[in-house]
Amino acid sequence: MTCCLSSCQAPVQAFLRPAMWCFGMRNCHKSDEIWHIDCSPAEAVEKLVDAINKASQNTDQDYDIHEVDKTRHFVQMYSYTKSQWLDVVEIQMQPDKESGTRAIARSFSSGIIPVCCPLAPIFNSLLCWVPFSGNHFNDQRLEALRNSMDVPVQVVEQHPECCAP
């Protein structure tokens, strides 16, 4: 269950995303994938929202759909770990060249300090240079979402978290 302070600070931390500021270190706690989905972008957004709801029942993390923009075919989700670290998932859908949908999926950790701590976005901004591992949660989260979708999803390109847990 997400605490009130976490819910209040999460949008600020997701907007700032201080863990993504340092070029070399951000690879330790982000995962990027490109998917091919066998349906239209509008339908893919609906399938993804259903998949998020389904995946949230099968994990000990708290998933919160923050934004669904049906005109831009964009979904942003917050994922809170048990300790209230905030990870962000952003998936942008677009028509694929031949058929179906090309989805650019990204999952990343937002900072080294959990958002349940007072002033976490400020402290995470000050500590943006401190390396930490995402423990491959971002890889696992994207895989869980792909596997929960009720339509075939193929990984076309993958850039997983590179640091050891």
Rank of each mutant, 00 (worst) to 15 (best):
residue 4 C to W: 06
residue 5 L to C: 08
residue 6 S to G: 12
residue 6 S to I: 12
residue 15 F to C: 11
residue 16 L to C: 07
residue 18 P to N: 02
residue 21 W to E: 08
residue 21 W to P: 02
residue 22 C to T: 07
residue 25 M to G: 14
residue 27 N to W: 15
residue 28 C to K: 06
residue 31 S to P: 02
residue 32 D to E: 14
residue 32 D to N: 11
residue 32 D to Q: 10
residue 45 V to N: 02
residue 49 V to F: 00
residue 51 A to M: 09
residue 51 A to W: 07
residue 52 I to A: 11
residue 53 N to R: 06
residue 54 K to W: 09
residue 55 A to M: 05
residue 55 A to K: 01
residue 58 N to P: 06
residue 59 T to P: 06
residue 60 D to Y: 07
residue 61 Q to W: 11
residue 61 Q to D: 14
residue 67 E to L: 06
residue 68 V to G: 03
residue 77 M to F: 00
residue 80 Y to N: 05
residue 88 V to Q: 01
residue 91 I to G: 02
residue 92 Q to P: 12
residue 92 Q to L: 15
residue 94 Q to D: 06
residue 95 P to M: 03
residue 97 K to R: 09
residue 97 K to D: 13
residue 98 E to T: 13
residue 98 E to W: 08
residue 98 E to C: 06
residue 99 S to I: 09
residue 99 S to W: 10
residue 104 I to W: 03
residue 105 A to W: 02
residue 106 R to T: 08
residue 107 S to L: 04
residue 109 S to Q: 06
residue 111 G to W: 00
residue 112 I to L: 07
residue 116 C to I: 15
residue 117 C to R: 07
residue 118 P to C: 12
residue 122 I to S: 08
residue 122 I to A: 13
residue 122 I to Q: 06
residue 127 L to E: 04
residue 129 W to P: 14
residue 133 S to L: 11
residue 138 N to I: 06
residue 138 N to S: 04
residue 139 D to E: 14
residue 140 Q to A: 15
residue 144 A to D: 15
residue 144 A to V: 06
residue 145 L to D: 05
residue 145 L to Q: 03
residue 146 R to E: 09
residue 150 D to P: 04
residue 150 D to N: 10
residue 153 V to I: 03
residue 158 Q to L: 10
residue 159 H to Q: 11
residue 163 C to Y: 08
